[in-house]
Amino acid sequence: MKKEVMESYWKSNVRLVLILLFVWFSVSFLAGIVFLDFLNQFRLFGYKLGFWFSTQGSIYAFVILIFFYAWCMNKIDERHGVEEK
């Protein structure tokens, strides 16, 4: 396998992971903890918004993040010709 292909593959991989981890951090640590009280002044039906993020929203986001990651990585694998048979 060529060195350049491998480097570009790893770079795309790390970039994707960094973007997704930023979202991961935002929905849990930021929305669910740091800005909890601030978000609690808004409402989502009967939920205070901060409370919703910390008990519901962050978990839904985590699920979506992993599916999205798996889907993107398969694309990145194919683009670099390293997909498994």
Partner: peptide, 26 residues
């Protein structure tokens, strides 16, 4: 725990699910 601690119990909800993002990505 959540029944008695309310919003503070969310540390377990986020902590025990958010770890899977790390596990899956890293």
């Amino acid at each position: 725990i959540i029944a008695f601690e309310g919003a503070d119990g969310a540390r377990y909800l986020m902590g025990w699910t958010g770890g899977y993002v790390l596990l899956a990505l890293l």
